[in-house]
């Protein structure tokens, strides 16, 4: 068995495989299929200060090798999280990471302050890249100035590792990554979904209630991989890579491109056991190539 452990700042992950926000609920929803304690981490569904109903149905459109979603951060709010969800996860031996969202900087601050108090939440993923909400969300992640402002504000109140989740809907993602690193991000994760659209030609109407939505799945993998590679070269902090990872080979590509850890998202809808299959597959790969640690392959792309 190779050493699969990785670190983000001082936070230890038993392996580099996490489940992506919005694709695994709060963990318990996939507990029938996977032993959560075997995962490197679980990034839970996007949480906001207040309850959000999310967007109207229809919220989903299948696309070639992927899907569009327009969920719009439906969640019951942080109070419900602390009261009803936190108790169910706090004794599971894995890193449960809260995906933090807001419409305003004040929202982000208030939420981060509350999460900071929770002993068993070792890190947050600051989402400045949700394409499916009218206010806030992606708007914060598409310019250096607004990304810096929100990261700086949250850094002032949040003391544990802070991973900032970047939007791919920008001209130069490496610039944004450098900007948030400069304001104290301990890590960056990428990518969130690409803004996309689907039309039903028979009805001549958009398929999604919101007209546009976020594209995920294997369809985005080559672009996500390119972005992870560019960002890994631009920043010193660890990079968490994601976008269309379906198997261990995909995960290893992201790590070779410079990702310290990876997240599995849409693949879970196809088969919720895929994240654990990837853990095993990475181990097999390391043994086959005589690496004693997964850390040896991070950013080891041969040119």
């Amino acid at each position: 068995m190779a050493d699969l452990s990785v670190k983000i700042k001082d936070l230890h992950f038993k392996n580099p495989v996490l489940t992506a926000s919005g694709t695994c609920g709060f963990g318990q929803e996939i507990a029938d299929f996977v032993d959560l304690s075997k995962l490197g981490g679980v990034v839970m569904k996007g949480t906001t200060l207040k309850h959000r109903e999310g967007n109207d149905y229809p919220r989903m459109a299948e696309t070639p090798s992927g899907m569009l979603n327009a969920v719009g951060l439906q969640n019951k709010g942080v109070d419900n999280f602390i009261k009803n969800i936190y108790p169910t996860i706090k004794d599971v031996d894995s890193n449960f990471i809260v995906n933090v969202n807001g419409s305003t900087i004040e929202d982000y601050i208030a939420l981060a302050e509350q999460i900071n108090e929770l002993d068993k939440i070792p890190a947050i993923e600051l989402n400045i890249s949700c394409p499916n909400v009218k206010e806030g969300g992606m708007a914060f992640g598409v310019s250096c100035a607004s990304a810096e402002a929100v990261v700086k504000a949250v850094r002032a109140v949040y003391t544990k590792p802070m991973i900032v989740k970047l939007s791919p809907n920008v001209t130069d993602i490496a610039e944004i990554a450098k900007a948030v690193e400069g304001e104290g991000a301990d890590s960056v994760s990428l990518v969130n979904t690409f803004l996309g659209m689907a039309i039903n030609p028979e009805t001549r109407r958009p398929v999604l209630s919101t007209i546009t939505g976020g594209l995920s799945g294997p369809a985005i993998k080559p672009i996500a991989l390119r972005m992870v590679w560019q960002v890994a070269q631009a920043v010193k902090v660890p990079v968490v890579g994601m976008g269309g990872i379906m198997n261990a080979a995909d995960a290893i590509e992201f790590m070779l491109a410079g990702a310290t850890a990876i997240e599995v998202g849409t693949a879970i809808f196809i088969d919720p056991t895929i994240p654990l299959q990837i853990v095993d597959g990475i181990n097999d790969y390391l043994e086959r190539h005589n690496f004693s640690s997964v850390r040896d392959i991070i950013g080891s792309l041969q040119m």
């Binding site: 694709t23 609920g25 109903e53 149905y57 229809p58």
Partner: peptide
């Protein structure tokens, strides 16, 4: 229409008297 079928994607919602 569904993406996952087991409650993680939140794509299949219906409006009810107590919300989605």
């Amino acid at each position: 229409t569904m993406a996952c079928g087991f409650g993680v994607c939140l794509c299949c919602v219906e409006k009810t008297t107590t919300g989605h």
